[in-house]
Structure formats: structure tokens, C-alpha cells
């Protein structure tokens, strides 16, 4: 998906994990998705460089749909659909 498409997605939940280091963003993502319904979309904010590789690989193994990421000033936005 393009950055524009990602930014226009209908988000069901935002997880702000900025300021936490690995494995903080991954654990926060797992917790959020655990509380969400199938088909819902979570936006994860992370300032941890490892998250951009870590979360997509994890999401794929867990059967979630990773839609992509957007680079902001000093952090990422990652989009995962349950």
C-alpha cells in the first residue's frame, strides 16, 4: 500500500509504544490485537528501529495481515489488520 493509502485507512485502535525499547512495541501490539475483533485495524507507533522488521515477521507467523509502515519524524507508524 502507498503511504497515502495507509494514512487514509480506518483505524480501530492506536498503540503508542514510542519511548519503549524492544520488546516493548511487540508486546504492546500483541496485547492490543488480543483485545480486538477479526478484521479490525491497529496502528502502532514505535521509535524502536527493530520494530519495523520484528512486527511484520511476527504478524505473518501469527496469521495477521501486515499492511505497511509510514516513517514520521523519529518514529514509525505500522498498520496491522487482525
Amino acid at each position: 500500500m502507498t503511504t497515502e493509502e495507509l494514512k487514509n485507512l480506518q483505524i480501530d485502535k492506536v498503540v503508542d509504544a514510542r519511548g519503549t525499547a524492544c520488546p516493548g512495541p511487540l508486546m504492546a501490539t500483541k496485547k492490543a490485537l488480543g483485545e480486538m475483533k477479526s478484521g479490525e485495524l491497529v496502528e502502532v507507533l514505535s521509535s524502536d528501529g527493530g520494530t519495523k522488521r520484528d512486527v511484520p515477521m511476527w504478524a505473518e507467523r501469527k496469521g495477521f495481515q501486515y499492511l505497511g509502515d509510514v516513517l514520521e519524524d523519529g518514529y514509525f507508524r505500522l498498520y496491522i489488520r487482525k
Binding site: P23, L26, M27, K30, W58, R61, K62
Partner: peptide
Amino acid sequence: INGAVADD
């Protein structure tokens, strides 16, 4: 172990 738990 947090990573392992995240992977169930």
C-alpha cells in the same frame, strides 16, 4: 522470553 511469549 518476552519474544517467546509474544509468539505464544
